[in-house]
Write a protein that binds this DNA or RNA. Structure first.
Lengths: 345, 345
DNA sequence: TTGAAAGCGCTAACAG
DNA sequence: CTGTTAGCGCTTTCAA
C-alpha cells in the first residue's frame, strides 16, 4: 500500500515541538500536562494540516492493547450471525474498538486455530464466539485465564463464561403446545445439530409439551443432523415415510423448515390443510410463504446487543459479569400454519 | 485480558540462544541462515513447549505490514454482504491475513471515517468496499494513492479501481423481456437506490427491453428509494394506485419483492393470476412463496471470491489488475410467477 | 512547561 | 553458524 502515513514525529517537527509534547497535546492532556495553549494549538493545527492519524499498530504495541475484538462464528454468511456481527461492530466502534471477523466453517479444528490466533497472535481484547460445541477444553482454558469472552447462541453448563442465548426451551414448549392445542397427537420434530444447547433445549421444550399433553415423547419422532435445509428435507422425507400418521412438524430453524416445505411440495402436501408446520426463528419471508408460517421469533438484535454490551463492559471494567447465563425472551407468532389434524377433519 | 503471552525472548532463553536465532529458526530460515539442526530443533521445541505465538502486533510494526484486510459494507447483516464477508475471510485467512469488518450504516459520513481509520490507523493492506455512492472523492483518493482496493456490487465509471459486480443490465433486460414476452404492456418497476450502479444498470436493462418491445419507457412506471422492504411496499402501493393498468412488477431486490408481496396481500392480489412479479437476486425462500418467484439469480459466492482473489492478488504482486470491471453473469430462473395480463385472459 | 530516553516484541542488517 | 544492534511509531516516566 503506497503513500507513507504521517507519523507523530512529522507532526511534532511541523509544530516545532518534541514528539512527547505532540503526543500529549493530541491525547487531550494539555490541561493535565500543563501544556501552553499556543503549543497545543500549534500541534493540533499541524496534525490537522498533515492529516495525521496515529498508527494503531504502534499504539497497540506500546499500550499493550490491540483495540480489537474478535468475532468467531461457524458461518459468517448465516443471517443470524450476520445480524450479531453487525451489532457487535456497531458497539465496538462506538467504544473505539475494531472487529476481527473469523469463520470456523463449522469445524472444531478451525475454531481452535482461529481462537488461538485471535487471542495470542492478534491479542484481541475480547471475543464473541459461537462455538461448534462438542469438546470444549479450549473454552474452559479461556475461562480459566480470565479472558474477556462472551458465548452466543449456545452455552455450556460446565463452563464459567457469560453466555447469551434465546429462551430455547420455552420456544420449543410454546411451539409444541400450540400444535397440541390444535388436536395433533402425532407430531414430528426436525431438529438441528444434536449436542448444541440451542438444539437440545428446544428438544427439551418439545418433550415437556408432549408429556404435559399426555403424549409419549417417542425418539423416532425426532430427526435431523444440523440446522441446514438439506437436513430438514431429508428428515421430513424420512419421517413422512416412517410415521405416516404424523400430522404436524416442528422445525428447529428456518432452513430446516424450507427443507420441509420442499419435501411437502414434492408430495403435494398443503400447509396447514394436509400438514401443519411451525418453525423456530422468524424471517421476513415467513409471512409470504404459500402458507404463512407460525414461528417462534427470537430477538436476534437483542442477542447481539446483549453480547456486545457484556463484552465491552467486561473489557472496560475488567470484571466478570455477575450473571453467567443471559436468556433473551422468545415469542410465538401465530400465522395460522397449524390446522386441525386430518384424522379429526 | 490476563495471562501474559509468551514472547520470543522467552523462547530464546529457554532454547539457550539469542532472540535473532530464535526468530530465524521459527521463520523457517534454518537452511537459508545455516542454523545448525540441533539449534533449530531446540528452538522449535522450546516454542512448542511454551506455546509460543508470535505477536502479530509487534510484527506488524516491525514489518510495516499489518496482515489485515478491511471489509467495508453498508449493512453487515444483509445476507448479500454477509456472503461476501464469508468469502473474503476465507480467502484472507488462507493467505495469512485477518479481516476487519466495518459497517457504514448506509451513511457516507461513516463510510469516510471508517475508511480513513482502516487505511491510516489500522493500516490494512487491502480493502473490499461497497460504497454508498454519491460523492466519492475519497475513492478517487484511494485510486490515486495506489491503494489495494476492490469495489464490490457497485462501481464508478470515473474511478480507476477494480470492481466486481453482477451483469445488472443484462439481468434487468432478461427479467423485463420475460415479462413482455408474456404479453404484458404495463410493467412497473420497483427500483432500489437510485444513483447506485447496480440500480441504474438494472433500470437500463429494464428500459432497453421496453424499447425493444415497442413500449414507452415511462418514468412514472419506476418507483423506489432503496433496496428495503419498506421501499418496495410503499412503491407498490403508489404504483397500483397511480397506474391501475399495471399487470406486472419487476422488483430490484428480494426485500423490494417482499414489500410488493405485502402490498399484494393487503389487496388480495394473487401472483401470477392477478399480477406478475419478478425479482432480482435469488433467495432460498423464493421457491416456497405463495407463488414461487421467477428471479434473476446473481452468483454472490462468485462475486465474493472474485473480489477476494483480486484483492489478494493485488496485495501479493503489488500490481493493479489489468481488467478494471469484472462482470459476474446472471441467470433467469423461471418459477412461473409471470402470468398473462388480466386484460388478455 | 517541555524534552530526552527507554521500551513494547519483533526482524534484519551487520558483525563476528 | 550465531549474537549484537538498531529501529518500526508510539507513550510515559524521569529530568530539567
Amino acid at each position: 500500500m503506497p503513500a507513507e502515513p504521517v507519523t507523530l514525529e512529522q507532526v511534532a517537527a511541523a509544530a516545532g515541538v518534541s514528539p512527547s509534547t505532540a503526543s500529549r497535546a493530541l491525547a487531550g492532556k494539555a490541561r493535565e500536562c500543563r501544556i501552553s495553549p499556543q503549543t497545543e494549538e500549534a500541534v493540533l493545527k499541524a496534525a490537522r494540516g498533515l492529516g495525521f492519524q496515529p498508527s494503531q499498530v504502534a499504539r497497540s504495541l506500546r499500550n499493550r492493547r490491540s483495540g480489537l475484538i474478535g468475532l468467531l462464528v461457524p458461518d459468517a454468511s448465516n443471517p443470524f450471525f450476520a445480524a450479531i456481527a453487525r451489532k457487535a461492530t456497531m458497539f465496538a466502534e462506538r467504544h473505539g474498538l475494531s472487529t476481527l471477523l473469523a469463520d470456523s466453517h463449522d469445524s472444531m479444528e478451525h475454531e481452535r486455530e482461529l481462537l488461538a490466533h485471535l487471542m495470542q497472535s492478534r491479542q484481541v481484547e475480547g471475543l464473541i464466539i459461537c462455538s461448534i460445541g462438542g469438546s470444549h477444553d479450549h473454552l474452559s482454558d479461556l475461562a480459566r485465564k480470565g479472558a474477556n469472552v462472551v458465548i452466543v447462541d449456545r452455552w455450556f453448563s460446565d463452563i464459567q463464561l457469560p453466555s447469551v442465548t434465546s429462551d430455547n426451551e420455552r420456544g420449543g414448549y410454546l411451539a409444541t403446545k400450540a400444535i397440541i392445542d390444535h388436536g395433533h397427537r402425532d407430531i414430528g420434530c426436525l431438529q438441528g445439530r444434536p449436542g448444541t444447547s440451542s438444539n437440545d433445549e428446544r428438544l427439551k421444550g418439545f418433550t415437556r409439551a408432549l408429556v404435559e399433553g399426555g403424549l409419549t415423547a417417542d425418539g423416532s419422532l425426532v430427526r435431523g443432523d444440523d440446522f441446514s435445509l438439506q437436513s430438514g428435507y431429508r428428515s421430513t422425507c424420512e419421517l413422512l415415510k416412517a410415521r405416516p400418521g404424523i400430522s404436524a412438524l416442528f422445525a428447529f430453524s428456518n432452513q430446516n423448515a424450507l427443507g420441509a416445505l420442499r419435501a411437502f411440495a414434492e408430495r403435494k402436501l398443503r400447509v396447514p390443510e394436509d400438514i401443519s408446520l411451525v418453525m423456530f426463528d422468524d424471517a421476513p419471508f415467513a409471512e409470504f410463504l404459500a402458507s404463512p408460517l407460525s414461528v417462534i421469533r427470537q430477538d436476534v438484535e437483542a442477542i447481539g446487543s446483549c453480547a456486545a454490551e457484556l463484552l465491552i463492559g467486561q473489557i472496560r471494567t475488567a470484571e466478570r459479569p455477575k450473571e453467567m447465563l443471559h436468556r433473551v425472551p422468545v415469542e410465538f407468532v401465530d400465522r395460522a400454519s397449524i390446522g386441525r389434524p386430518r384424522s379429526l377433519v
